[in-house]
Design a protein around this nucleic acid. Sequence first.
DNA 1: TAAGCTTGTTACAACTTAGATACAAGTAAA
DNA 2: TTTACTTGTATCTAAGTTGTAACAAGCTTA
Lengths: 220, 220
Amino acid sequence: MNHILIVEDERSIAELLEIQLTKAGYVCTYVLDGEKAADCLEENNYDLVLLDIMLPKVDGYELMEYISTLNIPVIFITAKDAVKDRIKGLNMGADDYIVKPFDIGEVLARVQMVLRRYGKGQNELHFQDVTLHLSSRRVTKGGEEISLTPKEYDLLLVLVQNKDIVLYREELFEKVWETEYIGNSRTLDLHIQRLRRKLNLQEEIKTVFRIGYILEERET
Amino acid sequence: MNHILIVEDERSIAELLEIQLTKAGYVCTYVLDGEKAADCLEENNYDLVLLDIMLPKVDGYELMEYISTLNIPVIFITAKDAVKDRIKGLNMGADDYIVKPFDIGEVLARVQMVLRRYGKGQNELHFQDVTLHLSSRRVTKGGEEISLTPKEYDLLLVLVQNKDIVLYREELFEKVWETEYIGNSRTLDLHIQRLRRKLNLQEEIKTVFRIGYILEERET
DNA sequence: TAAGCTTGTTACAACTTAGATACAAGTAAA
DNA sequence: TTTACTTGTATCTAAGTTGTAACAAGCTTA
């Protein structure tokens, strides 16, 4: 589980970020000024800092300089036309930036991306009552552990990561087996079958005839 | 339907991008140098430009400057450690950047994000009450799911992408079957017929005698 | 209008593909 | 080495898809 520190002086925005990021499975702390941010950073370990550059008391850049010594990734937030800020920020080692007013989906995407880049990607993925514990490569369904083989796990991971998107057979082969697709092999089908059985996802893992497979919520 | 111009001097990369973005439902054009890019930009309207900064003939930055006067979003592509490039690029009004070597999934995400930000986002294609869900290859009509075979879907996609444009039989064959047109085959007609029935588009899919087919709004 | 194409329609056969089962090769642990 | 386990192949079956044949209907031009 990843801890994110939100440094943002507008309370409403800070709360919005907190709520949405928490919903997305992160643990969040928010502070309204730079001093408190520095305190928090000293006392706790964070995986990522979301930093508004325009801050009272402490200059945002100073803070960023400090954070970069801690080797924690930073995504900073700037106003719409503050191009200079963006440049200065990137120059100082920030990992990404978000422009205000922002789309919350975009924030989530950027956060995920940066954490992934740092190898701190979320350590759980969910599909219905199935949970993939990424760091331990374990899978549970409704709390019960399901034992999957490595290939099965890899395949499931790709499916869950691409929920609601058709995965072409070639694509799956490339992603899971890291080889090209050999037309006449039954091995992909076999693994799909095994996943469907072990996790009872007969309906959810749909075959798209001649194309590939797709993971979707069951239709009622 | 979003048109993307890909400016990339390595043909293999340009083609990879083209194939993947087309698959994702975008219409793509790629050019291998800056001059051709400028030509294309003059003659057509694009919704997004993917621009490799390292280009022969015309400097990437010059090109970007030009594009920004057209109010078309730009995502530029830089080498791994070219931080200076990124900064310069952002300074010149680029909307995002992608670092080489890139993950194709990340490219798609960035493209979607930028297009969404510009109010051009699209994961769906519409014709009247028919919707093609591109990422899942599903089709609904008035909310009801219609089950199409792969060929039927491919054909429909081409028709919808080329709404109001006559598609020659040869053209359709090339695009859907990826083979040359064999004059005496009834197979195209058959698939057209099947689409007309399944989607109730008797009027809308018009035959252009001796030429091909065209998808048009029904005349009242 | 009639001749000569072109396209629509139906039925059906050929072909492809995916699911299932059994089993063998390969691998890692005991 | 034995054992347990994973992974892929071979094969059969069931199901879905796609194209051809044959004929009907429609369009165009003389």
